[in-house]
């Protein structure tokens, strides 16, 4: 059986005055139907641009320059905006980081939900409201009938994000790209939303790509993890295995900088330095300048190595692998 989403060698570049910014550079991964995949990395690692590329929402000067994105066997790269528009919201949806900026402040919740529905089918107002109410109830909004007439500013941050999730689910897409949907929320609300998203994805049979810089939230949700650094995937595999024994020094660094991994009273470890400019990447491994294991070999790009379900790109993986 082929995967729901197959991305092969995706490259999304941005033309800029200082050179081409390779925001996403040769990314390949699959997402199976109903699967929750975590996509982690720090700011600028290309995780959000990967998400936008899947929806065909790359604005100029950005462009998908190479690679293939297949959804349910259909190639998305090269589709016209009109064709993509029909897929967006219908087969692939997206939830954004900050619900207070994603919802239109001057339109009622009901109106925004009706518009999202009307983008794909003509339904009567009564039928649209009915579906909107049902979904608001499903995402845990009390008194959904009343909320249809409410405006975003009358809802709390958590409620707004639930509305955004309801809009994403409206047309029952097979895949939702979630771009740090809990980052802007209180910790207690985060946990609720995480649990609800997991249940909703299961009930609707929807696959999720959960983009985050926070390994802790991803590990509570995803079954598989993809770690990106400077536009490339540096490690991927089942989440348990990666958390137990990361192979890439960058993944190790991310894990070590989690507060929960440090012993009480001990200083948090951090990854020294910062990510190189995407317009001017070093020729070999992009992480080498910050890596304690780096040596001369790292001046050449590390090839992708695979071992069963796990994959990594490093000349010096953290544990010995059978040759």
């Amino acid at each position: 059986m082929s995967a729901l989403l197959e991305i092969r060698d995706l490259a999304t570049h941005f033309a800029s005055a200082t050179g081409t910014v390779k925001a996403v550079d040769g990314v390949s991964f699959d997402v199976n139907a109903g699967e929750i995949v975590g996509l982690v990395g720090e700011s600028g690692s290309g995780k959000t641009i990967t998400g936008f590329s899947i929806l065909g929402l790359i604005d100029a000067p950005g462009r998908i320059v190479a690679g293939s994105i297949k959804l349910e066997g259909r190639e998305l790269v090269g589709l016209s905006q009109g064709e993509l528009r029909k897929l967006r919201g219908k087969r692939i949806a997206m939830v954004f980081q900050d619900p207070s900026t994603a919802l239109n402040p001057v339109l009622s919740i009901g109106e925004q939900m009706r518009m999202a529905l009307a983008a794909h089918e003509s339904v009567s107002r009564a039928a649209a409201d009915e579906r909107a109410r049902d979904l608001l109830a499903r995402v845990g909004i009390p008194e959904p009938a009343k909320r249809l007439d409410a405006y975003p500013h009358q809802l709390s941050g958590g409620m707004r994000q639930r509305v955004a999730i309801a809009i994403a689910l409206l047309n029952r897409p097979s895949l939702i790209v979630c771009d740090e949907p809990t980052t802007a929320l209180d910790v207690s609300i985060q946990a609720q939303i995480l649990a609800e998203m997991r249940d909703l994805a299961r009930d609707f049979g929807t696959a999720l790509i959960w983009i985050s810089h926070d390994l802790a939230t991803v590990s509570a949700l995803a079954s598989r993890l993809i770690v990106m650094y400077a536009g490339r995937i540096v490690e991927d595999g089942p989440i348990g295995a990666i958390l137990r024994s990361p192979r890439h020094p960058y993944t190790r660094g991310l894990l070590d900088s989690l507060p929960s991994m440090a012993a009480p009273g001990q200083e948090l470890r951090q990854i020294p330095g910062s990510m190189p400019s995407l317009a001017n990447l070093p020729p070999g491994c992009a992480f080498a300048p910050r890596c304690t294991h780096a040596d001369a070999a790292c001046n050449a790009a590390p090839p992708e190595r695979r071992d069963g379900e796990r994959g990594w790109r490093c000349h010096h993986p953290l544990i010995a692998v059978p040759a």
Binding site: R88, G89, N104, P105, A119, A168
Partner: peptide, 20 residues
């Protein structure tokens, strides 16, 4: 983000300009 979110929901450019 309002426009991005509307685009992600598949709304047409005319709808986005006129209504949002």
């Amino acid at each position: 983000d309002v426009v991005r979110f509307a685009r992600a929901a598949g709304e047409s450019e005319t709808t986005i300009l006129r209504r949002h």
